[in-house]
Simulated assay, not measured.
Amino acid sequence: MVRHDHPQPIRRKPRTTWTLVAVAVALLIAGVVVPHALLIAAGLILAGSTGLGGSR
């Protein structure tokens, strides 16, 4: 019997991951240039979420 308690991690293509990292860096830079904490926070959250589905 197979248990499905834990959802499978999201597997992204490397191209998608690099695109998300580029968007996260762009948000961080925009947040620093235009002093806006929401842009900085969005960039940090997006950058952190791209590392969640890493290979093991």
Rank of each mutant, 00 (worst) to 15 (best):
Q8C: 01
V25L: 14
M1A: 09
R15E: 15
T50L: 03
A24C: 05
V25D: 04
L52M: 15
A26L: 15
I10D: 07
I45P: 00
G43C: 13
P35F: 13
V25N: 02
I29C: 11
H6A: 12
L46P: 02
P9N: 05
H4G: 05
R12D: 05
R3F: 06
G43Y: 11
G48I: 10
G54M: 10
L28E: 14
A30W: 09
L27N: 05
V34Q: 13
Q8G: 03
D5C: 07
R56D: 08
H6P: 00
T19K: 06
V25R: 02
R15H: 06
P7R: 13
T50M: 15
P35T: 12
L46H: 01
M1T: 04
R56Q: 11
G54T: 09
R11A: 11
G53M: 04
L52R: 14
V33M: 12
L28S: 09
K13R: 14
G31W: 00
A26W: 03
T17P: 00
L38M: 10
R3S: 12
G43W: 03
P35Y: 07
G54P: 00
P35V: 12
I40R: 12
V21W: 07
G51W: 09
R12I: 05
P9L: 03
G43H: 08
I10S: 05
G31E: 05
A22E: 03
A24N: 02
L46Q: 07
G31S: 06
A24R: 02
S55R: 15
L20C: 11
R15L: 13
I10P: 02
L39R: 02
I40K: 07
G31I: 01
K13C: 04
L44K: 00
R3N: 11
M1L: 04
T17H: 00
T17M: 06
D5A: 12
G31P: 03
V21F: 13
V33F: 08
T19N: 04
P35E: 14
G48Y: 03
L39M: 13
V23L: 14
T50F: 01
I40N: 02
A26M: 11
K13H: 14
P9D: 01
R3T: 08
S49Q: 12
S55Y: 02
R11G: 04
G43D: 06
G53W: 04
S49A: 15
A26N: 01
L38D: 03
A26V: 14
V34D: 13
T16D: 15
V25S: 05
T19M: 06
D5Y: 07
I10F: 05
D5G: 07
G53T: 11
G54N: 08
W18L: 13
R11Q: 10
I45D: 00
Q8K: 10
V21H: 08
P7E: 11
V32W: 13
A30M: 12
T16W: 01
R12M: 12
G53H: 05
L44F: 13
T16A: 14
V21D: 04
L46Y: 05
V2R: 14
L46S: 14
L38W: 06
V21R: 15
A37P: 03
L39H: 04
R11Y: 02
V25M: 08
A30S: 15
A30N: 08
G54S: 14
V33D: 06
W18N: 10
M1D: 06
L44Y: 01
V32N: 10
A41F: 02
P35G: 06
T19Y: 01
R56K: 15
M1E: 05
L27R: 01
R12Y: 05
T50Y: 03
A37M: 08
